[in-house]
Amino acid sequence: MIYFEDLEVGTAAAFGRYEVTREEVIDFASKYDPQPFHLSDEAAAQTHFGRISASGWHTCAMVMRMLVDNITERRQAGLGSPGLDELRWLKPVYPGDTLRVESELLSKKQSQSRPEMGSFQSIVRVYNQDDVLVMTMKSIGLIRVRGD
């Protein structure tokens, strides 16, 4: 199990592989972000996207899946997250793209009011199959302290 004490500032990781499908893009957009350029080829052709693109929120959800899979695989003693400090959608994500994640640990701090937990900040970069940077976010994670 990976605890707060095991985290090293500056550590980088690369992980994940998420294949974006047209059906999933349309399904997500239909439920949560029903803007025409996420639902219709004709509408998307009239915008700077040029074709159906994934909602930025859908991109976040796909990245979240890769993050959780990585945390689970690495057996990290995670306690959730209080949120993000920054989120940027830099390039459209299209059906047929394959996403991957690179992250770097920027900082960590043990809680003074709850010494059994700590927090850490990471920069998360998301790339497509052509190594084009499509999204970045600064995330905050909570993690258990081993307390040896």
Rank of each mutant, 00 (worst) to 15 (best):
M135A: 14
S107C: 05
F37G: 00
S139M: 11
V68Y: 13
D69N: 14
P34C: 07
E5K: 05
A12W: 09
R51G: 03
E116G: 15
S139R: 05
K91N: 13
R144S: 14
L90M: 11
T59S: 13
A43G: 05
S139V: 10
N70D: 15
F4Q: 01
D85P: 02
P36V: 07
R88H: 12
P82N: 06
N128V: 03
V101G: 00
T72F: 06
E86T: 14
V134P: 00
Q112C: 05
V25N: 04
A29V: 05
P34V: 08
G118Y: 01
V124F: 11
E102V: 10
R22M: 13
A13G: 09
M117V: 13
G56P: 02
D148L: 09
L106P: 06
A45M: 07
V20L: 03
P92G: 08
V132W: 10
W57V: 01
Q35T: 05
G141E: 00
R51D: 02
K91Y: 08
L7D: 06
G147D: 11
F49D: 02
R144E: 14
V63I: 12
A61H: 06
I140W: 00
Q110I: 12
G50T: 01
A61L: 02
A45L: 06
R65C: 01
G16F: 02
M64H: 12
S111N: 11
A12V: 15
T72H: 12
R100E: 06
D69W: 00
Y94V: 02
Y32W: 13
S55T: 02
G56M: 08
V132L: 14
T72R: 15
A77S: 13
V63E: 02
V68F: 14
A77D: 03
E5I: 01
G10I: 05
F49M: 13
V126N: 01
R125C: 03
A29G: 04
A44G: 08
S103L: 11
A45K: 13
K138P: 00
L79M: 14
T59H: 04
R51K: 15
L67P: 00
A61R: 02
I52T: 05
M137Q: 14
R125H: 09
R146E: 14
E19P: 08
R125P: 02
R17D: 12
R74F: 01
G147I: 04
K91C: 03
R51S: 11
V145D: 03
L105G: 08
T136R: 11
Y94H: 09
I26P: 01
E19F: 10
V93N: 03
T59N: 08
R65K: 15
G147E: 13
A12C: 15
E8D: 12
K138T: 15
Y18M: 09
L39I: 07
D41R: 08
S139Y: 00
S107L: 07
L106N: 08
L133A: 09
Y127H: 11
K108H: 11
Y94P: 00
S139H: 05
T47E: 08
D69F: 01
I26F: 04
S139E: 09
F15R: 10
A13F: 12
S119D: 10
L90Y: 09
Y3W: 12
Q46V: 00
W89T: 06
A43F: 03
A77I: 01
G78A: 15
N70W: 15
E5L: 04
T47H: 11
